[in-house]
Design a protein around this nucleic acid. Structure first.
Length: 604
RNA sequence: UGUCCGAUGGUGUAAUGGUAACACAGCGCCCUUUGGAGGCGUUAUUCAUGGUUCGAAUCCAUGUCGGACAGCCA
């Protein structure tokens, strides 16, 4: 079984309970969910939860999950985002749910079916393929687009007008706000509410034909201006926007609103369970009203809502993320400190780890703050199992082994991954002059310091036990070199190999070490809730969220593989960054190892 | 002073009228050629009040607190 396929027990939550019940009742021929982002920004960790929920359900119940661009507002959406969304979704679902991904042949628009003298629109999904198969296929696939249904949605709007359930309204935006009332105060009917179906049809067609400027008129549902639910107070279905659309070009100058387009898109695609976040709870009656008013021939989709993921020590709102990029607080959408999926990926977090986290937080209707420590645990748990161990010294100090011959080099065996012996071994060169970590030596050791100290002994990982004989300093009193003697019998297999010394430290041979740029990433914010009580998140930025250093690495790291994950022993997990060039590797620190000594040292 | 939704250890979730459990975090111990990983142990929980019931985290009522909703955004 591959690492990717090691999964936690199947989760259970209130939505899955509902789905399981529907499966038992055979309510639908097949469970069909969808993940419907608006292509107006990059996907982030919150979307990851939604992706895992929707694809997870498809996977557990033998269903399909469509990827759909919810692109009904041309002024906010761009192709760049459409592409990044596809990349991120494919990466996240990987071989976990790739065969549940519902797509369609490129360019395909809904079929029209006539039965009982009634039109019906259907946009079926193709699924059951792997990403590799799709790439090699002669027929290109693409995600679904709400904008592919503009003709059908327009048709539905006319049907509503004919039924007397929608009207063209000439109220200005300001007047409409006045007429809407407030949550605790009823609204008033629009003076245009009782236009005839013929007049409405004519006006709506002229809206489509481009006769009116932006904002001049809207198409509104005729529901109830006195409803306690503001979303039922004759909500806008269509607005005029003379704007080019990234997918439909200049074809339209009227665009449906989210509420009108979404439920109908779900219906056209045969979605059974339309899962969204809690803020849409109050929209649900409208979702149902539109579908029921149209008297559609097939089973209607139902909307279910869950609480979105709010991770601590970060921000997730699209607007704020854009600000971080624009203010150059981070380097771009894929900055490894960002909670965007592209940033998370670049940081070195695996799709498996992100999924385990996103699934592990559970699905409820309670709005909670998820401690970033839970996320970090999921990353470490995954990386511990898969990462290749390597020796690297971040902040070097020179050590000379005085009883080791000058010019001698020996290759020592080192295990690649103690958690997976199949990962094999490699050899590391050892010689007279080494680098060890500055923090691993203390001239005046604090209590419980297990590392190198004057007159003390420590184990060099995979090598000898050494003893510090002399501390060499420059004129300013800075330590420049440690002179040590090795117990030459103490290496693996040697007579004194079993000798117990309290500490084991990492090292590299000075002559053989390669330099690598290492980017040490940390949390972007120092506070769990950067914007708590309306505070400006800029006041709680972590000044140390990125530190760039040059590290001394064992030679094998010259051939580091971008698809691998590495643990620099005793330090942290790293992955190769895309900025690497041949001979000049750049490593990103994904997450530190747990550091029990740091905790202990803090107590003292 | 409207409608809807919610409340279980420090945090996040489970228990679907029948012993309040799991994970993270914390603390302690064991083990360790990573102060990692692993193992063992431990601290700590049902918003309040009333009701129904043999029995309530679960059902009902009232209250308290928190959230969502008044874009021609999604």
């Amino acid at each position: 079984m591959s690492l990717e396929n090691i999964e936690k027990p199947v989760p259970s939550d209130f939505i899955r309970d509902i789905v399981a019940k529907h499966v038992a009742e055979e309510k639908y021929p097949r469970i069909h969910t969808r993940f419907p982002p608006e292509p107006n920004g990059y996907l982030h960790i919150g979307h990851a939860k939604s992706i895992c929920l929707n694809f997870g359900i498809a996977r557990e119940f033998g269903g399909i999950c469509n990827l759909r661009m919810d692109d009904t507002n041309p002024t906010k959406e761009e192709i760049e985002y459409v592409e990044s969304i596809q990349t991120d979704v494919n990466w996240l679902i990987g071989d976990w749910a790739e065969d549940r991904l519902g797509l369609k042949p490129k360019g395909k628009t809904p079929q029209t079916i006539s039965g009982d003298g009634k039109r019906d629109f259907i946009q079926p999904a193709i699924f059951g393929t792997s990403e590799a198969e799709r790439k090699n296929s002669t027929t290109p696939f693409e995600p679904f687009y709400a904008s592919d249904y503009f003709d059908q949605i327009y048709d539905y709007a006319e049907q509503l007008i004919e039924k007397g359930k929608a009207f063209v309204c000439d109220l200005s935006a300001a007047d409409m706000e006045l007429y809407r009332g407030a949550p605790d105060r009823p609204g008033q009917d629009s003076p245009f509410r009782n236009r005839s179906a013929e007049e409405n049809l004519d006006l709506f067609q002229r809206m489509k034909a481009g006769e009116f400027p932006d904002g001049a008129r809207t198409l509104r549902a005729k529901i109830d201006m006195a409803s306690s639910n503001v979303w039922l107070r004759d909500p806008i279905l269509y607005r005029i926007k003379h704007a080019e659309h990234h997918h439909t070009g200049a074809k339209w100058c009227i665009y449906p609103m989210y509420d009108f387009a979404h439920c109908l898109s779900d219906y056209i695609e045969g979605v059974t369970h339309s899962i969204c976040t809690l803020e849409f709870e109050v929209h649900r009656p409208l979702y149902d009203w539109i579908l029921e008013s149209l008297h559609l021939p097939r089973a209607l989709p139902k909307q279910y809502e869950f609480a979105k993921l709010i991770p601590s020590h970060t921000i997730v709102s699209k607007r704020k993320l854009i600000a971080l990029v624009q203010d150059k607080i981070v380097t771009g959408w894929d900055d490894p400190r960002l909670p965007t999926i592209s940033g998370i990926r670049r940081r070195g977090v695996t799709a498996t780890a992100l999924r385990n986290f996103a699934i592990g937080v559970g699905v409820t209707k309670y709005i909670s703050l998820t401690d970033v420590a839970v996320y970090e645990h999921a990353i470490r748990e995954d990386l511990n199992k898969r990462s290749l161990r390597r020796l690297a010294v971040l902040r070097p100090i020179k050590v000379v082994i005085t009883n080791y011959p000058e010019g001698k080099v020996e290759e020592l065996d080192a295990v690649n991954n103690p958690e997976d012996l199949n990962a094999g071994k490699r050899q590391i060169p050892f010689s007279r002059e080494l680098f060890i970590e500055r923090d691993d030596f203390a001239e005046v050791p604090p209590p419980k310091f297990f590392r190198l100290k004057p007159g003390g002994e420590v184990r060099l990982k995979y090598a000898f036990i050494i003893k510090c004989d002399e501390v060499v300093k420059d004129a300013a009193g800075n330590i420049t070199e440690l002179r040590c003697t090795a117990d030459l019998d103490s290496k693996m297999g040697g007579p004194t190999a079993g000798r117990k010394v309290k500490g084991t430290i990492h090292w590299v041979s000075a002559a053989h070490a390669i330099d690598a740029e290492v980017r040490l990433y940390d949390r972007l914010f120092t506070e769990a809730e950067p914007e708590k009580d309306g505070r400006d998140y800029r006041t709680v930025l972590n000044p140390n969220s990125l530190e760039v250093i040059t590290a001394k690495c064992e030679p094998s790291l010259n051939h580091a593989d971008a698809n691998e994950r590495y643990q620099f022993e005793r330090l942290a997990y790293f992955t190769l960054d895309k900025d690497s060039t041949p001979g000049k590797p750049v490593f990103n620190r994904t997450i530190t190892l747990k550091d029990a000594w740091a905790k202990e040292a803090q107590k003292g």
